[in-house]
């Protein structure tokens, strides 16, 4: 049987992980059943969505606007709830 999974022989001692923050490669967007849609026209850039996001999925793009990274967003809805201008709407994910 061939497998590409590492074995005891080629794993580092104590299972040390040498790449800091390697969880970035992991797609947690699959947790989501609803996705947030940010209306840029209503956004006042107060940053509440960014502050309260448990997943760090909200980021500031090159134009200085807040944007949601759907690779990491788990769809908890905190940003939509905390947005003072109600600029973020939660909509159902569709197949």
């Amino acid at each position: 049987m061939t497998t590409d999974k590492p074995t005891v022989k080629n794993l580092p001692i104590a299972g040390i992980i040498f790449v800091p923050g390697s969880a970035k490669e992991y797609n947690t967007g699959a947790f989501r059943s609803q996705k947030p849609i940010l209306d840029a026209k209503l956004c006042t850039k107060c940053g509440m969505c960014w502050v309260y996001c448990p997943d760090g999925a909200v980021f500031v793009n090159s134009e200085g606007m807040y944007e949601i990274n759907l690779k990491y967003c788990k769809g908890c809805g905190i940003c939509s709830e905390e947005c003072a201008r109600k600029a973020i709407k939660m909509v159902d994910e569709e197949e």
Binding site: A23, K24, Y26, M48, V51, P54, G56, N69, G75, C76
Partner: peptide, 25 residues
Amino acid sequence: SIKDIPLEEYFTPGHRACQGCGETI
């Protein structure tokens, strides 16, 4: 203010907390 908080994330996205985990904030 909120703007003084650095943008760098030292606890990176991609962790497997439940949706809406208070701890990770």
